[in-house]
Design a protein around this nucleic acid. Sequence first.
DNA 1: AAACCGTGGTG
DNA 2: TCACCAAGGTT
Length: 347
Amino acid sequence: MPDVLSLRAALLDWYDAHARSLPWRAPPGAKAKTDPYRVWLSEVMLQQTTVPHAAPYFERFTARWPTVGDLAAVEDAELMAAWAGLGYYARARNLLACARAVADEHGGVFPDTEAELLALPGVGAYTAAAVAAIAFDRAANVVDGNVERVMSRLFAVETPLPAARPELRRLAALFVDAHRPGDWAQALMDLGSGVCRPRSPSCDRCPLAFGCEALKTGTPERYPLKTKKAERPRRQGHAYVLIDGAGRVALVRRPDKGLLGGMAGLPTSDWGAAAEFAPPVAGSWRAAGSVEHVFTHFSLTLEVHVAAGEGGDFLWTSAEQAANALPTVFRKALERALGTLSRWERA
DNA sequence: AAACCGTGGTG
DNA sequence: TCACCAAGGTT
């Protein structure tokens, strides 16, 4: 059994020397903690999202909305447009709901306990613990995918995920301490992302190698064990790009719930095993080829169609503004349509 | 509690 | 190529 105290000391020492510098992070041991607003915003953006993908969004958001009060005052559509491309759009809806809850119910100040944080929209067990530890120095058990992987390897846990979650959480709790809880959480995540990686872990650079049970087995990358995932079904659909004389594009606002909820979108058919061509308005529609997109739980082929037209119950938006406000699947379709149009015009 | 919910990088 | 993966939360 690895010695918890030695491992703790080794990882904190390693963090002091090797901590990544990130836009939302205070240096190791810093007396002035990061603004809770910035910690919270970064944690929400980083849910299931890589640092390189989230970082530019974080910079834009904090430049535009420096405080939680500024964010709370933003219009829904403006926030959804700013989130476009980051994915998991429920996060953006909950982000706004959370900012408004902090503004209206907490006097514009983030609560500093895990329980109160957990009650906020879009803040689950992980995010509540992370904000409590990093922004408020609370001894919270911060468990994310990195921590699960590190624990599963340190203790060579043979139970596969997701069944192993409770056990991994108990193991992680063994290390939680009132001494530097925020640094501890971030040290574990830096270790998980840079050293104890899912594939080809760098055990030769690992400060915890001396106590790692998985390393002793000779195949540390076997951990954590996982149960097989179901395969992704394939769906088909049509997307309709209607363009008026001023070069504006007809967009719709998608329903708040469900896939891409609350986002601007192109008019489309239903998506299923097969899709019927039924454009939203009559006109001389021309086929512009297709685009592929992969969502979490299905793959989609979208046949793109273009026509000239105007009026109707649409949000008429300049092509440039549309490209910036649309989720990626529709941005692909729009680019396909515009590229095809310019080829036709040259011919 | 299993299913749903995006995107881009990677080997 | 494509399956896997990333600082999860909600229903």
